[in-house]
Nucleic acid binder design. Structure first.
Length: 470
RNA sequence: GGCCCCAUCGUCUAGUGGUUAGGACAUCAGAUUCUCAUUCUGAUUACCGGGAUUCGAAUUCCCGUGGGGUCACCA
């Protein structure tokens, strides 16, 4: 049986890999790994105008950070290197010329002005803009014109009136008519291929068995099928995944959502939680489980069980899932590792995480982990409240009283049960609710359970917090 | 607009001719409790519409409607 080889083909035109592409990457990864196959990254950097310096590195870093290890790629090489399209230019030229010699493509010298005029004309006539094959019918001296330095492109020669179809693993047969396919530019005047040419040649050369990509590519698949046929190449399996949506159902976009994969990590989401959440987009566990590992997903997943409706990316549910991972899935050791990694540049937090009193640190983790949605929340429980310019007299009075009451507690009896007793008597005496004590000590009516937290802080630091009122 | 894809709670979904239409997130209420969380219990909320097939349709078919995608020398 043929080796299963899947790939993602991101373009370095943004800040990072888009979360929708990370989803596509996850599915490609899962399909490859399920069949002991290979998962590949190929960088499609053929658009020089939108090229972003450094984007490729960020994309690769993110894919790695999410644990989707690729077997071949631009940074690690592989048997079909190079994996960057800009380094494969002679290949595309050669194949484009092959198409021309077969009559499946032709040179086009039309200017942008003529193309624009043509398009405007067609649009005002309410027709779909399409190239009119002018150069196919009128150019007879292409060789001379090219030799004289004239700018040209190579276009796909679509024979009209042909009924065709391809089979989509997820959606079944998709039928189309060649009349609907434009004579797409294959080679641009700058010598770079367009996506359509590059993707077909590279997928074939790199022996990609499954082309798994987002739904937005369905309408250009006919062009690709035509190319495979012209070359006489065997078609890969096509699978078009649903597009992740904004809450308003439009295609997930950076205007309406956080779309860069690394953003979630930097906000304190765990890679497992994001991957787990993503795997629930358009797929469901046969037993209805919501929380499961990537390995389990790989085992259970199949392309045939992917849904066809575009799911809304719901960050609220992702948050919940991240909380589940923090409090239930990760071991204490793992949680500590993640926190240490997340706060590696924060001296204060790091010293807390590196507490030599292991049981003390352990208790803190226990207290915080049911209250964290993201790793970023951790610090919020530990911050000392800032001193405010104006405290109300009543507040100062209460703080003074609480300070005096607590000061009486001896160092040895500074334990949560004793502290709780003191706090309760404070509340009873001053006729205030416990929330007041929380505000006095943490600046927040919500937070870690006070007696435990005060024990953790120690008497001195606790009293210090109260002294800021004076 | 042409072409293509899609349609179960607000959201993610289970469901493949006969179910009180199930679960999860969110929301609300209650229990636990030193606040807040966690945990537990409960509640609210859905088959887009119309035809057809059938003894019987969320489920099959058709037509609407709605949403989405795509129509570049961008991917």
């Amino acid at each position: 049986m043929k080796t299963v080889r899947t790939r993602i083909a991101p373009s370095p035109t943004g800040e990072d890999i888009h979360i929708g592409n990370l989803y596509t990457a996850l599915i490609n990864f899962a399909v490859a790994k399920k069949h002991d196959g290979e998962f590949i990254i190929r960088i499609e950097d053929t658009d020089r105008t939108r090229f972003q310096e450094g984007a490729e590195q960020k994309i690769l870093r993110s894919v790695n950070a999410y644990g989707l290890r690729y077997d071949e790629g631009p940074d690690i090489g592989g048997k079909f290197a190079p994996y960057r399209q800009s380094e494969r230019l002679p290949l595309y030229k050669k194949y484009a010329e092959e198409l021309i010699s077969k009559g499946a493509a032709y040179y086009c010298f039309c200017t942008k002005d003529r193309l624009d005029a043509l398009r405007n004309e067609q649009q005002s006539a309410k027709k779909t803009p399409r190239y009119d094959k002018y150069c196919l019918q009128h150019v007879i001296n292409a060789g001379e014109r090219i030799a004289s330095g004239e700018s040209y492109v190579i276009r796909l020669n679509v024979v009209p009136g042909k009924k065709m179809s391809f089979n989509d693993v997820i959606r079944g047969e998709i039928i189309f008519n060649s009349d609907e396919v434009d004579d797409q530019v294959l080679m641009k005047s700058d010598g770079y291929p367009t996506y359509h040419l590059g993707v077909v040649i590279d997928d074939h050369l790199m022996e990609i068995s499954h082309v798994i990509r987002a739904e937005e590519w369905i309408s250009s698949t006919p062009k690709h099928v035509l190319l495979y046929e012209s070359f006489g190449w065997e078609l890969p399996l096509f699978a078009h995944l649903p597009i992740l949506r904004n809450p308003d159902k439009s295609k997930l976009s950076k205007r309406k959502n956080a779309v860069w994969a690394s953003w979630y990590l930097s906000e304190g989401y765990l890679r497992e939680a994001v991957i787990n959440y993503l795997s629930l987009m358009s797929w469901s566990h046969p037993e209805g489980k919501e929380v499961f590992s990537l390995d389990e997903f790989i085992q259970l997943f199949s392309l045939g069980s992917v849904h066809t409706t575009g799911p809304v990316f719901d960050i609220q549910k992702l948050e919940w899932m991240n909380g589940v991972y923090i409090r239930e899935v990760l071991t204490e050791k793992e949680l500590l590792e993640r926190l240490s990694d997340f706060y590696r540049d924060d001296q204060d937090i790091m010293s807390i995480l590196q507490d030599e009193d292991v049981s003390r640190r352990s208790r803190l983790l226990e207290l915080t982990k049911t209250r964290m949605k993201t790793l970023k929340d951790f610090q919020s429980f530990l911050k000392s409240p800032a001193r405010e310019d104006r405290y109300e007299n009543e507040q100062i009075g209460l703080a003074k009283f609480l300070l005096d009451t607590l000061a009486v507690v001896s160092d040895t009896s500074w334990r949560e049960d004793e502290i709780l007793r003191v706090l309760k008597s404070f509340c009873a005496e001053k006729q205030v609710s416990m929330k007041i004590a929380y505000v006095l000590l943490t600046g927040n009516p919500q937070g870690l359970p006070l007696p435990q937290f005060m024990e953790y802080l120690g008497k001195e630091k606790t009293l210090e917090r109260l002294r800021r009122y004076f």
